[in-house]
Design a protein around this nucleic acid. Structure first.
Lengths: 367, 367
DNA sequence: TTTTAGCACTCAGCCTCCCTGAGTGCTAAA
DNA sequence: TTTAGCACTCAGGGAGGCTGAGTGCTAAAA
């Protein structure tokens, strides 16, 4: 069933006002802006309420939007927020600054999202496809010590210093690295079988367990690289919003977010969209049924992708928060793309700040 | 001025009871345990109050300990808590389990501390002395690509994959690594001067900027390794304690703890002691004046040391929390010591759980 | 001199009652 | 279909009263 033009205007006015004031909106407050009397507005509101778009906290209070109302607002009424120059400036300058200082671009992006939206933020980064070893080197250090260096298919390099009781020498290491380069490259973790390992032991003439040390490190490394990592920051931001002055609510959400980052139940954008908004009861997690979540996806190709999202009251400024997240996610994608594949996160810190690849994010195409 | 035996007993009773109930303690509740009448207790209490050890929230309420009272309790009256077998079991099993699963022993220890004390925990890990490079290797990958491998004085190994527009060849890399091993080892970051770099350029005949790339990576690495890293976990635990049902208090402490982990104002144990307890106003940070902090130090030699602490209400079970922290800190020290110096944190994950080096911690010597 | 019993007093917490103002639904007139 | 008017509702806040736990003080007992 379609809403009349006037009903849409009234619903929009209620949501806009409520987002700003956090107080139920009465008919009078709206009537002036629409050129009709409060009584008319009341009639329309009563209908909107019976249709499920508005609700009343109690009989003699104004109306607040229901989750269904918010959903309609987000889908149809909300005007896409354009970030002002000041806002993008702010994001960029914070990003640049952070990127120079601290480890972990994604974690930093989370911090920025949290501070710029005044909400708790969560990030999830994953490299989707299985990694493989691309190259092995073994560096001789002393009689009992050597370094394993493995270059992976995403061009990151991992190393490990190994000390063993038995003697090692340069020849042995050279032989081993030949064997590993011949037989262990381009394999995923599952493809490294015990029989492969034992045949490598035979081929290299290793009888002091070096092969198993090296292959053990390889397996562990491949496993680790595939693990997604998650962060939550800025949970204390919840307190800034009046709906979380209620200690019970605040606790529920905070505990959920900080409990070991069990991210089940948090939304993820669909395949083809960049942003996802879930409102109140649309959330799967019981603890978030009174809150809303906005999450944006970044994708830097080459299996580098992830999400960055925020959690807040259902009464939040969906439009501007969504725009900011999209802008940040876009920034991450671009940064990750520009950087050579190796050592992605580390290299960031060396870039002169003038090179940080931010452009104004056109938020009309993030439908 | 000395406290009489009876005053000490009364003070202790008040603190013990208050820790348990979080309610002001009346004279009657105590009198039974001491074999004197409530009137006598009242007289003594009045004196203790005028001496500053107790206070009254309001005239007709019982007494609660003042910070001075807690301090006296902690210094003189508190009986050192012995962990039960169950408790150490619990800590050990959680530790083992965590260590297998997640990265970062110290961060994990923080989580354990938080969960086991039901309080927010913070950790700070630092390698105190300046690191130096101990060995350089340059691995040729292809015409435009090579890998820098640097082994540091604490036996960790760092690497970086470098892609450059200019051509590189094996000879050049060999020459460069000789130069670097000759002139850049055993230097702290400050000792690497521009003049040293330019003389290395001359010595190696480098005219495509390789020396500056490598020395740049070296400097950055040395800087990074020296940075201390800090974590906070379990802030939501605050809600478990009645004193933080007041939203204002909870917010103050939470924001302080999560605000970028600015750890100024949090206490650190003195040189010669293992544990430090600061009570209410003894804390430097304004936000912690109503709370208490207990922090334990671990020290695994070889510049690996740090602290692990918790923040809680002034009414907390100082004795058992201190014992648990000390036990965990002790565990960390031992684990770090046992592991070969290289790749400390990574190796943990490979240990069979049966090797995790925990013994019962004798909490009589953590004065 | 110290301890105890007794008694009057205090006050937070809780309840109830009442008032106010913002906002409503309904009806009848425009 | 819109508007004005009117009676109604109810959260929030303040005033008043009651209760019970706990106190300080005094005078008697040990």
């Amino acid at each position: 069933m379609e809403l009349s033009q006037r009903k849409r205007a009234i619903l929009k006015a209620v949501v806009d006002n409520y987002i700003e004031t956090a107080e139920p909106i009465g008919s009078k407050a709206i009537s002036t802006g629409l050129g009709v009397s409060s009584a008319t507005v009341r009639n329309e509101m009563a209908e909107l309420e019976s249709m499920g778009y508005l609700e009343q906290p109690h009989t003699s209070a104004g109306r607040i939007p229901s989750p269904k109302g918010y959903r309609f607002y987000v889908n149809e009424l909300m005007q896409r927020h354009k970030l002002t120059m000041e806002e993008t400036e702010e994001i960029n300058s914070v990003l640049k600054q952070k990127v120079q200082q601290i480890d972990g671009l994604i974690a930093d992006a989370g911090k920025i999202a949290a501070s710029i939206t005044s909400l708790p933020a969560y990030t999830l980064h994953s490299s989707l496809s299985k990694q493989r070893a691309q190259r092995f080197d073994l560096i001789f250090v002393d009689d009992h010590t050597f370094i394993i260096v493995i270059m992976l298919s995403n061009s990151t390099v991992k190393n490990k210093l190994v000390k063993i009781p038995a003697f090692v020498d340069q020849n042995m290491l050279t032989k081993l690295s030949t064997v590993f380069n011949a037989h262990f490259t381009n394999l995923t973790e599952e493809e490294i079988t015990p029989s492969l390992i034992s045949s490598a032991e035979t081929a290299s003439g290793d009888n002091i367990g070096l092969v198993s040390v090296i292959s053990g490190f390889l397996i562990q490394t491949l496993k680790e690289v595939d693990i997604t990592d998650a962060h939550v920051v800025g949970t204390a931001n919840l307190f800034r919003h009046p709906e979380f002055q209620d200690i019970g609510k605040a606790e529920k959400v905070m505990s959920y977010l900080s409990d070991g980052g069990d991210f089940k139940g948090l939304p993820v954008p669909e395949m083809d969209s960049k942003i996802k908004i879930t409102i109140g009861p649309e959330n799967l997690a019981e603890e978030l049924k009174d809150s809303s979540v906005i999450v944006a996806k970044y994708d830097a190709g080459n299996n580098m992708q992830g999400i960055i999202g925020v959690v807040g009251p259902t009464r939040m400024d969906y439009s501007s928060v969504a725009a900011r997240l999209a802008y940040i996610a876009d920034g991450i994608s671009k940064m990750l793309r520009q950087v050579p594949q190796s050592q992605q996160l580390q290299i960031q810190k060396n870039l002169p700040t003038s090179l940080i690849p931010f452009e104004f994010f056109d938020n009309n195409n993030n439908k």
